[in-house]
Write a protein that binds this DNA or RNA. Sequence first.
DNA 1: GATGAATGAGTATTCATTCAT
DNA 2: GATGAATGAATACTCATTCAT
Lengths: 217, 217, 217, 217
Amino acid sequence: MPQQTFFNLPDEKRQLILDLAIEEFAQHDYKNASISNLVARAGIAKGSFYQYFEDKRDLYLYLIQIAGEEKKRFLEQKSPPNPGMHLFDFLRWAMSEGARFEFSNPLLAQVAYRALFSDRPFGNDPFNQLQDMVMAYYLSLVQLGKSQGVIEGDLDDSLVVFLLSTIFNNFGKFVLESQKIAPTDLASGSVDYRSVNMDELAGQLIAILQRGLAPRN
Amino acid sequence: MPQQTFFNLPDEKRQLILDLAIEEFAQHDYKNASISNLVARAGIAKGSFYQYFEDKRDLYLYLIQIAGEEKKRFLEQKSPPNPGMHLFDFLRWAMSEGARFEFSNPLLAQVAYRALFSDRPFGNDPFNQLQDMVMAYYLSLVQLGKSQGVIEGDLDDSLVVFLLSTIFNNFGKFVLESQKIAPTDLASGSVDYRSVNMDELAGQLIAILQRGLAPRN
Amino acid sequence: MPQQTFFNLPDEKRQLILDLAIEEFAQHDYKNASISNLVARAGIAKGSFYQYFEDKRDLYLYLIQIAGEEKKRFLEQKSPPNPGMHLFDFLRWAMSEGARFEFSNPLLAQVAYRALFSDRPFGNDPFNQLQDMVMAYYLSLVQLGKSQGVIEGDLDDSLVVFLLSTIFNNFGKFVLESQKIAPTDLASGSVDYRSVNMDELAGQLIAILQRGLAPRN
Amino acid sequence: MPQQTFFNLPDEKRQLILDLAIEEFAQHDYKNASISNLVARAGIAKGSFYQYFEDKRDLYLYLIQIAGEEKKRFLEQKSPPNPGMHLFDFLRWAMSEGARFEFSNPLLAQVAYRALFSDRPFGNDPFNQLQDMVMAYYLSLVQLGKSQGVIEGDLDDSLVVFLLSTIFNNFGKFVLESQKIAPTDLASGSVDYRSVNMDELAGQLIAILQRGLAPRN
DNA sequence: GATGAATGAGTATTCATTCAT
DNA sequence: GATGAATGAATACTCATTCAT
């Protein structure tokens, strides 16, 4: 967690530092992300950085946390589906919107992706905590599905969680690749992600899952 | 490719170097993997390393190649399924055995995983080539499935490839996590992976996919 | 160009670093000059060097520049010859003083000599520029001599430039050798160069040139 | 001096090694000339090199010696001037032919030039010996000139030696530069040096020297 | 609270030389 | 006499972190 000094900064400066940090950690893995480079580009003193953050790790974990919060906020600000919604309708919505989040925050999404799938500079512990939260959420969805009678009750919960989470986590990258879009194009704004029809792809995928997970009578 | 010098080494020494290299590149990404550390642990001179390999990159690409070859050999030495096999029977077998490979070569699998999914120190080119081959293989399976009438013909090929490849690539990690096994435990041999019932989990997963992808009449 | 950091150093420390750097580059050509050796002798940290200079090249080019500036300052602080001076009187003065400069800054002169005549670590471009300036200056002298009627007009300009520049550039070394003085003796201060009668030698040499270049009636 | 083993080699192999060594030492100064590179290109074993030569230094000094011998042989095989020749006629001939030698053996000449003017990896001693010989030769010429009554007797011998030797040593490079010819062009044979009119330039230069050094009545 | 110079262990890579085969 | 693998000190350069101002 950043020091209080960081939060005392003018909004603009604080946001600049964060934006540049996200860019740095999106383009390099943890070890290669350079604090020197960051402070140079942000125009702040080396020493100041260490008054804002305990160390590099502190900043990094903060970015991960931000990524989670931003995604949550993104989804919440969209018209959330009605509560009684059919599970797979919700999943279809979440998959499309999740991909939209990745498309509109490509750098932040890249930081999160790295953290989830490959770059674990401090062992698994700090990430397992995050991941456990996410998994718990998927689990609640699976259980909802079972109670709605749209997921076969005999299936192993964690297996279904794996299936859903894996597909959801990688769907954004798949859309990207299937459209031959480089992540840098997104960040530079040279591609208008809204033109990509995510709903069509998400719909097909959800349909497959829905059939596959349906109760066997 | 390593120099001939490397292949002239006594088997034991050569294998020691490889094992330590695999460990190094499994625990750190390319940039952070340390040749200094490697040679220190292997007990060879710095200069000797550079008689065996052109440079760090040379070693790295060799490890990637080994990973591919080892996996291929692993699968081939298992009783391969009969040619006319039903697609999903084959997938069930491949998923189980793939996971078994990861369990018996956890560090090597980790090197390959990194290479495929995150660490691209030399741009995408050398890896895209590999990945394209893998994807082409998945595509052939999907087309086989369609011709066997077990996959709905209207589904988008690349979507199904994405679904299958993503699940196959992550299945091993899932089994690991679901058993609360750390990769280091595997490497150290303190866990007997054979006690894990991969077939059961693979069976459930394939069943889901089979239903989900089945033709809609 | 060094960083501002370098110029902020206490005069004494900055000068120490420069002196040792000049010594290093006087005794070794560019590739062999060792930054490690320099920082060890100067008692500064490796990292500090790289806060003062961008890299080795940066320091080197700075030394070359210093050499030029020092020579210019040296010549200017001597009573400069009156403008309407006879060309060969000027040359006599310049030859003596040029040698005196080499004698009072032997290491710096050696760095410059190397740069001009043999060690071209970055291709010829940055040096050709310098050399072209020097040659242009010699050319202006030759043309002056022709207009003063003291140099035969039919002689090839570039040939005379070659003759003058070669002799001027090597005169210092000749005086040194003729007195059996090692450059290190000069640097250590164990030899008093003022005792060497450069004017006598320069006078003889200029006389030869004057007669040789004189117009043929 | 090379070991006997070197001279026992088949002529062709021995010459190949020498040619490649000359190329190596022409393109790099002493420290940067790479034995590794040499043996690789010559197709001989590292160890063999150290059976032929004591060390890198041994080879280097041998090359210097060869340069001297080759130049001597080159000049001798040309129709040598008749003994009673006028000094300056001889010098004119020697200057042209000396430049021709540099043009026909550009790599060897480059090795020698480096040794004479900049790269003194072992201090001055081994070179002073060579240089003393050369200087003694120039001195004999000067004394001949005085006795022929074509050089002013009052001039300082060593000064005249300096004048002549400096000009002679640099004349080749001057011709090269004045023709805008790169040394590599010569080595590759892409330039026909015979088309360059050295005699004209040498003639002008000698004329200047002759007048400058002439006795003053 | 801000600064930015100083630190030094860390990196990959090179190369002349040795010596056992 | 030939081989070529082994050596290890050497190179330039980086970077997170500290601390005196």
